[in-house]
């Protein structure tokens, strides 16, 4: 999967959690949680949805790597999705 394909899936997944989100509002290198209203339950649901869609395991210890849209895409790419 290309980075652009992963990015599209990440964005779609995020939008299921935060339907008010527009792609143009999201700066890919800024902290997601500063730009999108996500509580810890939303965040967990976001990761669970990515896990189910992309069949990728995301250990809790890796959460700190997942801060921006870019880092989430890079992390998933490194997992070989």
């Amino acid at each position: 999967m290309t980075d652009d394909e992963i990015r599209a899936i990440v964005f779609q997944t995020l939008k299921t959690i935060a339907p008010e989100l527009e792609e143009s509002d999201l700066q890919p290198d800024r902290l997601l949680r500063d730009q999108v209203d996500l509580d810890s339950m939303d965040w967990l649901n976001f990761l669970v949805a990515l896990h189910q869609r992309l069949k990728v395991e995301i250990p809790e210890a890796d959460y700190r790597k997942l801060t921006t849209l870019n880092t989430v895409v890079a992390y998933l790419a490194s997992k070989g999705v």
């Binding site: 810890s40 339950m41 967990l44 990761l47 669970v48 896990h51 189910q52 395991e57 995301i58 250990p59 809790e60 210890a61």
Partner: peptide, 17 residues
């Protein structure tokens, strides 16, 4: 919580809440 969640799959993980 960290030790417990390390043993759990993503869908079974606990939140502090």
């Amino acid at each position: 919580l960290a030790a417990e969640n390390a043993k759990r799959s993503l869908t079974e993980r606990l939140l502090m809440a």
